[in-house]
């Protein structure tokens, strides 16, 4: 018990320290932190699905796109308050996630991967074809979340978003439903034999994960002030996946580490232009192949080995 309280203090101190960080930084670095926090929301919610229930969605970026476009279109066409828009975007992503989940999850994991990839392609086609509403590749200009644009304010908004996301993930994986998530991932037949409603558990995980992606996307759109098909692109999906895999699939800290690590790194190597997707791809390939639990997994193994055998 004492230990748990200790951990909580450490966590509070770390968050406080992080929250003070942007005061000493320039606009550019503040921007990098905000984008990193966006990726924390994306990776943590994707990890909830892939890392804890073993289902791979290739539509996570697409759900962020649903959130962004839903909120953006409501703001520009109906004049909805962007904050309510973020709620609407989250809800829209949840509804789409739920419907897709019900549609394909009774058939098993591979079907989810196929269907979400298809969904993401279709979303692109729709965005490009409905130019009147979405402004296609030109991008949709949307209002910001706050009257006076300030990176610092956005930083705190994104920090809150990331904390909410991590809190939801943490709660779920430590609740009874988290046991069911892991049981389904480990062996779905055994889980079913013990009374786990496998399809329901999967649909639930997929819906929550998609909703969180929708929230992240909606916030991101109102930060960039311009929503383009880049948000729901496969490149974006790839980045989220790579960050999670490199950081550590199925661990709580892994996605956070991956999101910050790769986003900051990619700012440094952006100068090399097109090579940076390739570089991330190769690194992710090597990590997924040789260290499937990512950096966190490597670290744990290292600590296990150092600890005297119990």
């Amino acid at each position: 018990m004492v230990k748990a309280i200790d951990n909580r203090w450490w966590l509070a101190a770390a968050v406080a320290g992080f929250a003070a960080l942007p005061w000493g930084l320039g606009i550019y670095h503040q921007h990098v932190l905000i984008v990193s926090l966006f990726y924390v929301m994306m990776t943590a919610s994707w990890n909830l699905l892939a890392g804890y229930t073993g289902q791979v969605s290739f539509g996570h970026a697409a759900f962020a796109g649903i959130g962004a476009y839903a909120s953006g279109i409501l703001a520009t066409k109906v004049g909805l308050n962007p904050w309510l828009g973020v709620g609407a975007g989250t809800l829209a992503a949840a509804v789409f996630g739920f419907l897709l989940g019900v549609l394909c999850l009774k058939m098993g994991g591979i079907y989810l991967s196929l269907t979400t990839l298809g969904f993401s392609e279709i979303l692109h086609i729709i965005i490009n074809n409905e130019y009147e509403i979405t402004r296609g590749t030109m991008g949709l200009q949307v209002p910001g979340l706050i009257a006076e644009y300030s990176k610092l304010a956005y930083f705190y908004i994104f920090l809150a978003g990331a904390i909410i996301t991590l809190a939801v993930v943490h709660r779920l994986i430590h609740a009874n439903i988290g046991l069911n998530f892991r049981a389904v991932q480990n062996d779905e037949r055994a889980a079913a034999a013990l009374g786990v409603d496998v399809v329901r558990v999967r649909v639930l995980a997929f819906t929550v994960s998609s909703a969180l992606a929708g929230m992240a996307g909606a916030l991101y759109g109102h930060y960039l002030l311009l929503i383009t098909p880049q948000i729901p692109s496969l490149d974006q999906q790839f980045l989220v996946l790579s960050m999670t895999v490199i950081g550590g699939l199925g661990s709580f800290a892994g996605p956070v580490i991956g999101a910050f690590g790769l986003e900051i790194l990619s700012e440094y190597i952006r100068a090399y232009g097109e090579y940076h997707v390739l570089a991330f791809g190769l690194v992710a390939l090597i990590v997924a192949r040789f260290a499937p639990r990512g950096l966190v997994g490597v670290w744990k193994q290292f600590m296990d080995r150092r600890r005297p055998a119990a």
């Binding site: 889980a191 013990l194 786990v196």
Partner: peptide, 30 residues
Amino acid sequence: CRRGIARTFQVTRPFGEMTCLENVAVAIVN
């Protein structure tokens, strides 16, 4: 299962990455 039939598997199917306690807990919490 919820009606009241429990079975063991001839080729065992443990939840390998979970502790024994958690393995049993899955049956309880459902």
